[in-house]
Every structure is written in structure tokens, then in C-alpha cells.
């Protein structure tokens, strides 16, 4: 496929995404299209106006791209428009359907962790030992899957790791997860010196704990799944002694 065809396809795909999104959001407005006694336009008028404008802007963008960008395709303007996408993407191999699917899998893992234990345990009661056991198992499985998937897609992993960190934080707590998170981000960004990584991790962790827990008394999440909960509360006791 020539670069011209690729560009045309990307323009159509982009417009299609916007129009599908607009259609989805518009259909949703029927669920809250209720009359309000003091406001004759109702609750749906404003979002519908925004959605129509969104669809118009998407069509306008497509027309603009297909007419003007084609005309100037070989010109500097066109190159400038796509500088950070096409060039870097080709260099980095961080584009293309395969990369997007791989990244989508990585970003989906945190949501698997959030929902799967509840489905397996058949309860959403946070005090249930059964649920907590499934959470620990799922956390371990998801982490292993993440490491395997991240091995060949470091950029996708950098995008997904913070989401996974946030998803697990409610259960496992900030105190236990933060050191692993710091090491993970450093590793994915290319740092390989173990001693340096350890020292920086300790430094950042100490800064965070001193600034927020010791000085400002911010109650960071301790989690509620044992033994992580015990570790979190122990840290708080030590730091705020």
C-alpha cells in the first residue's frame, strides 16, 4: 500500500471513529431525554447540539484532509502535519494494527483484574475472604501475563502499567505497590543498572512518604487485602509515630 493510500485510509478511519462515537453518544441521549418543567429544551438538548457539532467537525476534517492535504501532500505542510506520527511511528514500530492490538491487550489487563475476582467469587462484598483470595490469585496471574506481554512492547507497557498500578491500589495499597511501580517504569524506559534503580527507587519512595505521609498527613490507600493491608497500616504507624 502506497503512503498516499495509507494516508487516505487513516483519514477515513479517523472520520469513521468520530462518527461512530457521535452515533453512540446520540443514541444514549434517548435514555435521558426527559422534559424539565422549567426548561423546555430538556436534558438532552445541550449534549445533542455538541454531538451534531462533533459529527460536522469530523466531516469537515475529512473533507479538509481529502481536498487540501491531498493537494499539499508532498509539501512541507503535509509533512509537518504528520511529523510526529508517521516518522516516529515507523521508526519505533509503535504503530500499525499489531502494535495497537498488543497495547489494547495490555491496557485491558487492569480491567480484567478489576472485574474477574468479583465474577469468580460471586460477590462484591469487600470483607469477603473468598473475594480477597481471588483478588490475590488474579493479581498474581495478571502480573505474570503483563510481564510476558510487556516484554516485546515496552511503550504499550509504559501506557498500561500506571493503569494496572491504579487498578490494584484499592486492594493492595499504595505503600506496597509504589516501589514495584517505580522500578517497573524505570526498567521499561530503558534503565538497566540495578544499583542505580534501587537507589532511585528508595529516594523517590522516601520523598513521597516524607512529603505526603509524614508532613502533610495525607491518608494514602492502604488497601484491604491481607498481607498488603497489614504492611500499609504498619508503614503509616511507623511514619506518623
Amino acid at each position: 500500500m502506497s503512503s498516499n493510500d495509507k494516508q487516505a485510509t487513516s483519514h477515513y478511519v479517523e472520520a469513521a471513529i468520530w462518527l461512530i462515537l457521535a452515533a453512540f453518544l446520540f443514541i444514549q441521549t434517548f435514555s435521558f431525554n426527559q422534559e424539565i418543567e422549567i426548561y423546555r429544551y430538556g436534558a438532552a438538548a445541550w449534549p445533542r447540539t455538541v454531538i451534531v457539532l462533533m459529527a460536522l467537525a469530523a466531516i469537515g476534517q475529512l473533507i479538509f484532509n481529502r481536498t487540501r492535504a491531498n493537494r499539499y501532500e508532498a509539501s512541507k505542510l503535509s509533512q509537518a502535519l504528520d511529523e510526529s506520527t508517521a516518522d516516529q511511528a515507523e521508526e519505533s514500530d509503535s504503530s500499525g494494527l499489531k502494535w495497537y492490538l498488543h497495547t489494547l491487550f495490555l491496557v485491558a489487563l487492569p480491567f480484567v483484574y478489576i472485574n474477574l475476582p468479583k465474577i469468580l467469587a460471586g460477590t462484591t462484598d469487600v470483607g469477603s475472604p473468598e473475594l480477597n483470595r481471588y483478588k490475590l490469585i488474579c493479581a498474581a496471574v495478571v502480573t505474570v501475563l503483563f510481564i510476558i506481554a510487556a516484554w516485546r512492547n515496552h511503550l504499550g507497557a509504559v501506557l498500561a502499567l500506571p493503569v494496572l498500578f491504579a487498578a490494584m491500589m484499592q486492594d493492595l495499597g499504595f505503600y506496597a505497590l509504589a516501589p514495584v511501580f517505580i522500578l517497573g517504569i524505570m526498567f521499561l524506559m530503558g534503565e538497566r543498572r540495578a544499583g542505580m534503580m534501587g537507589a532511585v527507587m528508595m529516594g523517590i519512595y522516601t520523598i513521597m512518604m516524607t512529603m505526603f505521609v509524614v508532613i502533610l498527613y495525607v491518608g494514602l490507600p492502604t488497601g484491604y487485602v491481607r498481607p498488603f493491608y497489614d504492611f500499609g497500616t504498619w508503614m503509616v504507624k511507623i511514619l506518623q509515630f
Binding site: 511501580f181 517504569i185 530503558g190 505526603f212
Partner: peptide, 20 residues
């Protein structure tokens, strides 16, 4: 500071900022 060391600090500060 090399960015690979700054990045986790920024992300953790943002985490606390959003949570606070």
C-alpha cells in the same frame, strides 16, 4: 535528572494529586 528517574516521580506525584 535523566527522564527515566523523573518519570516515576511525576507519575506518583500525579497519583497523590488525583487521590488527594
Amino acid at each position: 535528572i535523566p527522564f527515566q528517574f523523573l518519570a516515576p516521580l511525576i507519575l506518583l506525584l500525579a497519583t497523590v494529586g488525583a487521590y488527594a
